[in-house]
């Protein structure tokens, strides 16, 4: 069971600011998702290899060959703030 404090914890990790009402709504929805996933336990999966990908492919790699980069101004274009050649970010350590 997902409890209120679990939602708060996950929200903090994901940098989400949720209101009390939203926390309750998320709690209900997450529990609903978990209940749905629980249904899988009804299946016998002892002989099934855990799967991380639905496609039966391995070893997809590329050559170590340089490709085009973005011009700096384009790279910085969507940034909320810049300082000359750099992205600028607000104070990192919170008090």
């Amino acid at each position: 069971m997902i409890e209120r404090k679990d939602v708060e914890h996950v929200a903090r990790l994901a940098r989400l600011a949720l209101s009390a009402a939203e926390i309750e709504k998320m709690r209900e929805q997450l529990n609903g998702i978990l209940a749905y996933i629980e249904k899988l336990n009804a299946l016998a999966t002892d002989d099934v290899e855990p799967t991380s990908h639905a496609v039966p492919m391995v070893n997809v790699m590329r050559d170590d060959a340089p490709g085009p980069c973005l011009p700096r101004d384009e790279a910085l274009a969507n940034a909320p703030d810049r300082a000359g050649e750099f992205f600028r970010v607000p104070r990192i350590i919170e008090d």
Binding site: V60, M61, R62, D63, D64, A65, P66, G67, P68, C69, L70, P71, R72, A75, L76, E85, F86, F87
Partner: peptide, 30 residues
């Protein structure tokens, strides 16, 4: 495919993949 040259001018060796733009896909360097 961005180059890895050390000391290049800031933010000139980036692309949508290594900037984490939505919708881009990484491919492993062999």
């Amino acid at each position: 495919g961005c180059p890895t040259t050390f000391g290049a001018s800031p933010n000139t060796q980036t692309c949508p993949i290594c900037l984490g733009m939505p919708g881009t896909l990484p491919v492993i360097n062999r």
